[in-house]
Design a protein around this nucleic acid. Sequence first.
DNA 1: GTCTATAAAGCGATAGAC
DNA 2: GTCTATCGCTTTATAGAC
Lengths: 188, 188
Amino acid sequence: MARTVLDRSDAVRALAGVFRKRGFEGASLSVIQQEAGVGRGSLYHFFPEGKTGMAAAVLEQVSDWFEERIFTPLRTAHDATEAIEAMSREVAQYFISGERVCLFAAMTLGEERDTFADSVRAYFTDWVDALAVALRTGGLSPQEAADRALDAVAAIQGGLILARAYGDDAAFLGIVARTEQHLLGPAR
Amino acid sequence: MARTVLDRSDAVRALAGVFRKRGFEGASLSVIQQEAGVGRGSLYHFFPEGKTGMAAAVLEQVSDWFEERIFTPLRTAHDATEAIEAMSREVAQYFISGERVCLFAAMTLGEERDTFADSVRAYFTDWVDALAVALRTGGLSPQEAADRALDAVAAIQGGLILARAYGDDAAFLGIVARTEQHLLGPAR
DNA sequence: GTCTATAAAGCGATAGAC
DNA sequence: GTCTATCGCTTTATAGAC
């Protein structure tokens, strides 16, 4: 009988995959046990708050990833164009290799909506605000930067829905590419 | 004891509200019974296929609504500008008065993804294609029309996610307005 | 067409051995 | 830190009276 000893971050990584694939309510403890290869005992040892704690840990890990790879680079960029191109690249790769699911967006539907409402709002405002900072660095007015940032995040999120609906990434990649062009386009 | 006799379309309407508010898996039979005011007996009388049949009926009703109010007008428009303005108006009103949820988009997440994959794909391709027809009528090239149509549907869907995340409609309405401007903008 | 009672299965969570 | 057995509850679905 195989018996593997994990640490918490291994468990979080495995959980993220299951939640993305099955959704929060679709990922039952039995399913998690099988697909993530983490037993009930370990799960409740690492996450005493139960399934809600598991979701919170996964969301926090996603949030940290975006903060490090997307938001901070956007906020601190000297070259706005380069930072925005990097965002497109990173985001496309991240979502395509992650079942085309944004877990924060998924949390705006379903039962645990209220539980995670604050962190969901923070994720999206952080993204939009960081992108707006980069656009202002690139010479756009505050209003134009805020509008384009909001539109871009919406386009990416909507693109993910279409990617799942169509069962392929072509439409999503086209949307990301044109969104980048729109972000980098001349001020009006 | 109040006892109300309904027909099937009354039940479908009531179900749609519950599914939008609680999600498919969040809407348990007990919840549906209470919030929709339709008893278990009636539910299984109208929908012998059970909960899956209830969801299918709701999706079909939504699909019919879009076909009549959005897709057909776009396809048959003589004045493309007018048809696109009408789409913006109708769509904004529809989603704001419907918990900011697109049930077809919701079906791209969760357990019953596969069950409704075909009708979900059809909904989005019908929308994108109908919008592209209107844009070609308005003088755009087929490629430009297809791209703008796809971007617009993605923007609206992403806008709904942001509306739910922010808990208000301002961002969504801004996105819809700017999407309309982009659709009506000059050919490049 | 609607009601209530109930069956069978699955759920999240816990206890206690190892 | 991991395991298994089990509790108590809810789930979808059905049966049968009205």
